[in-house]
Amino acid sequence: MTEITHRFVQAGELRMHIAEAGEGPLVLLLHGFPECWYSWRHQLTALAEAGYHAVAPDQRGYARTGGPAEPGRYTLLHLAGDAVGLIDALGADRAVVAGHDWGAPVAWATAQMRPDKVRGVIGMSVPHRPRSSRPPVESMRRLFGDGFYMVRFQEPDVPEAAFDLDRAGTFRRMLYGMSGDGPSPPLIAPDGGGILDVLPDPEKLPGWLTDADIAAYVEEYAVSGFTGPVNWYRNLDRNWELTAAWHRAPIGPPALYIAGDRDIVAVGARGAIDSMTDFVPNLRDTVWLSGCGHWTQQERPAEVNEAVIGFLRGL
Rank of each mutant, 00 (worst) to 15 (best):
residue 164 D to R: 06
residue 88 D to Y: 09
residue 114 R to I: 02
residue 205 L to V: 02
residue 191 D to I: 02
residue 60 R to L: 00
residue 280 V to K: 13
residue 280 V to T: 15
residue 109 A to I: 03
residue 146 D to K: 12
residue 185 P to I: 01
residue 215 A to H: 09
residue 233 Y to W: 04
residue 273 I to D: 02
residue 291 G to Q: 03
residue 289 L to Y: 01
residue 231 N to P: 05
residue 89 A to F: 09
residue 82 D to V: 11
residue 194 G to S: 11
residue 116 D to F: 05
residue 225 G to K: 04
residue 102 W to M: 09
residue 226 F to W: 00
residue 83 A to L: 09
residue 84 V to D: 11
residue 6 H to S: 08
residue 187 L to P: 12
residue 268 G to A: 11
residue 204 K to C: 08
residue 194 G to K: 00
residue 137 V to N: 13
residue 88 D to P: 11
residue 101 D to T: 08
residue 202 P to Q: 12
residue 123 G to M: 00
residue 43 Q to V: 03
residue 142 R to K: 14
residue 250 P to G: 14
residue 107 A to Q: 07
residue 243 T to D: 00
residue 237 D to R: 05
residue 112 Q to R: 15
residue 312 L to C: 09
residue 204 K to G: 07
residue 77 L to D: 11
residue 293 G to E: 06
residue 84 V to N: 09
residue 312 L to K: 14
residue 194 G to W: 02
residue 10 Q to W: 01
residue 59 Q to S: 14
residue 260 G to M: 01
residue 38 Y to F: 11
residue 6 H to D: 00
residue 172 R to Q: 05
residue 60 R to S: 10
residue 21 A to Y: 03
residue 305 N to P: 10
residue 137 V to T: 11
residue 22 G to F: 00
residue 249 A to L: 06
residue 73 R to Y: 07
residue 120 G to A: 08
residue 111 A to Q: 08
residue 108 W to G: 13
residue 72 G to W: 03
residue 158 V to P: 09
residue 37 W to K: 04
residue 205 L to Y: 06
residue 144 F to M: 07
residue 46 A to M: 04
residue 275 S to T: 10
residue 296 T to G: 04
residue 113 M to V: 12
residue 125 S to F: 00
residue 115 P to V: 00
residue 69 A to H: 02
residue 269 A to E: 08
residue 61 G to K: 13
residue 252 G to F: 06
residue 223 V to P: 05
residue 101 D to Y: 06
residue 140 M to V: 00
residue 298 Q to H: 07
residue 150 M to A: 11
residue 122 I to T: 07
residue 116 D to C: 15
residue 217 Y to P: 09
residue 97 V to N: 15
residue 19 A to T: 11
residue 11 A to S: 15
residue 31 H to M: 04
residue 140 M to L: 13
residue 73 R to V: 01
residue 145 G to F: 13
residue 221 Y to P: 15
residue 217 Y to D: 03
residue 54 A to T: 03
residue 14 L to P: 13
residue 63 A to E: 06
residue 221 Y to W: 05
residue 183 P to K: 05
